[in-house]
């Protein structure tokens, strides 16, 4: 009966994932490998960026710098992703019964880790798929942006290369992301114990699910859990890059939602 409960928890979390994330790993992989039929627009230099921007946003404003255009695109996509992660969190059994202040804390610290996990599914070694715009931005082009903008995405590609070797599918990722959100050691939690109990159930469900879904990879849970520490590091570094951009660019405006997430974060 215990295993049946865990399997049912896994199903609930997976269904919440499918209901809330518009671009799943399965869909992203189909587009990236050309199985989906329609190919994305490839953004590999300034000219293709200008063409894509005028296609999606209307007239290209020559006054605006490519770096700011790219970063605003990135901010916009982040806010959308944060909304998706929040709706997903709200559907995790038990999350809604937590103190509202703890829900806020879990999201403040968890949304970026969740987001960079999901973005790994949209990345290959050559670039990242931005399917809301049906575009594929190359890694080489992102590297050519001036500093510190060139340092925004590159560490995420390095993480994705390592993370993607685990070959988790969407049903695994659903539980992995739920476990990231329900983390009992975020700073300032009022009832860490209650959250640890919820995370414990998710991790048990994840363990059982991996055993059934990947019977040939008995160490997969341990490997996945190690990646959680890498994600925390990735987010700390990301917050530093955002501060560097803020300091270096007068024209830069951070979205208010991202502002409140980064403020007093680490």
């Amino acid at each position: 009966p215990h295993e049946a409960n865990l399997a049912s928890l896994s199903r609930l979390v997976y269904s919440a994932y499918l209901n809330n994330f518009t671009l799943t790993k399965e869909k992203a992989r189909a587009i990236l490998t050309g199985r989906a039929g329609q190919s994305p627009v490839v953004i590999h230099d300034m000219e293709s960026l200008k063409n894509a921007e005028s296609l999606f946003l209307g007239k290209w404003n020559i006054e605006r710098e490519a770096e700011l255009v790219m970063f605003n695109r990135y901010q916009h996509r982040s806010v959308e992703a944060i909304c998706e992660v929040t709706e997903f969190a709200k559907s995790i059994p038990g999350f809604g019964s937590l103190d509202l202040n703890d829900q806020v804390t879990l999201l403040k610290y968890g949304v970026h880790e969740a987001m960079f996990t999901l973005w790994s599914a949209y990345m290959n070694k050559d670039g990242i798929l931005v399917a809301t715009n049906n575009s594929f931005v190359t890694r080489e082009f992102l590297k050519t942006l001036r500093k510190p903008y060139s340092s925004v995405i590159e560490p995420k590609f390095e993480f994705a290369a390592r993370f993607n070797t685990l070959e988790l599918d969407d049903s695994d990722l659903a539980l992995f992301v739920a476990a990231i959100i329900l983390c009992g050691d975020r700073p300032g939690l009022l009832d860490a114990h209650q959250i640890e109990e919820l995370q414990d159930s998710i991790l048990q469900a994840f363990h059982l699910h991996l055993r059934n879904n990947h019977p040939d990879a008995p160490r997969l849970l341990a490997h996945a859990l190690q990646k959680m520490a890498d994600l925390r590091q990735l987010v700390t570094e990301h917050a530093d890059v955002v501060v560097a951009i803020k300091q270096s660019d007068a024209a830069f405006a951070l979205h208010p939602l991202l502002q409140e997430i980064y403020e007093d974060m680490y």
Binding site: C83, T86, E87, L100, N101, L107
Partner: peptide, 20 residues
């Protein structure tokens, strides 16, 4: 609480909230 008012709104009202 006041410092995280958009996150609060997201949790309570969803992403259709006008603040987002």
């Amino acid at each position: 609480t006041e410092r995280h008012k958009i996150l609060h709104k997201l949790l309570q009202d969803g992403s259709s909230s006008p603040d987002i």
